[in-house]
Amino acid sequence: MWKEIVSISPPYHFDRVLERLSLDPLNAVSLEKREVRLPLRNQAKKPGIVTVRAIGTADAPEFLVSGTDDQSAMMDEVKRIFQWKESLQPVLDHFSKTNLSQLFEEHAGTPLVLDFHLYHCLMKCIIHQQLNLSFAYTLTERFVHAFGEQKDGVWFYPLPETIAGLDYADLRALQFSMRKSEYVIDTSRMIAEGGLKLDELGSLTDEDIMEKLVKIRGIGPWTVQNVLLFGLGRPNLFPMADIGIQNAIKRHFGLKDKPTKEEMLEMSREWQPYLSYASLYLWRSIE
């Protein structure tokens, strides 16, 4: 067992991170202990658990990180997932001069936290397409419980090789639609066979990733934008087709109806180059 104490630059409100993570029933979160147990895999794809516990405050953020093996590689993953190398202060300074200043003051220190693995993120985005959030979480939970693995009470998403070996009927039995079953299994087969190399996406531009992924059946712009945002942590993404963002904008600006695409483009101009944070804080405002 290894342990490491990590201090990062403020503000960083880990309790809000945990609140958001706790919305997903698959995440092993303890609000009381101020910790989350992460299902991470080493290079040999062997599952391992890393615990991240807050021992500081939003203004003096400090964490106790512990695990069982591969300390260096696992610490790199933890820092990537929680974006500990990205200071939030420039983001907050930027939005203090915008029409979202009140929102950013209210949720100050809320970071952009990534999904625990890029494949996990892609599968979750495909499953969540065109579903209400409650059923989306239920369907994803069924998927992971049926084909993933559990270790010490922590659930690990299945590997693409596992899903590649399924029949569509296996997902239909979980109440997946036929199309969604095809999207999940066919995409997993493409990854398992090397036709789609997820580890190469990080070196591509947002535009190149969009062009590459939308060619895959079942992956549209909304899915790619969410993968860019929550899989790769790109800072300037704004999924305008997202109903949650539309509802949050309607509420924040006191609009009678949901905003049009043109209205969203106009009001979001001053949010660049941090559109991803605007998206996150708008979602947070209605969660």
Rank of each mutant, 00 (worst) to 15 (best):
A164E: 10
D170S: 11
M178L: 14
I185Q: 00
V184S: 03
T162I: 14
K180V: 04
P158F: 10
E182R: 15
L159V: 07
I163W: 10
Y183N: 02
A173F: 14
R172G: 03
F156S: 01
W155F: 13
L166F: 09
Y168G: 09
I163Y: 05
V184W: 02
E161I: 07
D170W: 09
L174H: 08
G165P: 15
E161N: 11
S177R: 02
E161G: 09
E182A: 10
S188V: 06
L159A: 07
V184L: 06
Q175H: 15
D170P: 02
R172W: 02
Y183W: 04
R172L: 11
Q175W: 15
D186K: 09
Y168R: 13
T187D: 05
M178R: 12
Y168T: 07
V184H: 03
P160I: 08
A173I: 10
T162M: 08
V184K: 05
T162W: 09
D167Q: 13
A169P: 14
G165H: 14
S188T: 06
G165Q: 14
L171P: 00
F176Q: 05
L174W: 13
Y157L: 06
S177D: 03
D186C: 10
Y168W: 07
L171N: 07
K180N: 01
A164T: 10
D186Y: 02
G165F: 14
M178Y: 09
D170T: 03
I163P: 01
Q175S: 14
F156K: 00
K180E: 00
M178A: 10
D170R: 02
V154R: 00
Q175F: 14
S177V: 06
S188N: 06
K180H: 01
P160H: 12
G153N: 05
A169S: 15
L171A: 13
R179V: 05
V184F: 06
Y157R: 04
K180F: 00
F156I: 04
V184I: 11
R172I: 05
V154T: 03
R172M: 08
L159N: 02
Y183S: 02
R179H: 11
L166W: 12
T187W: 02
A164N: 10
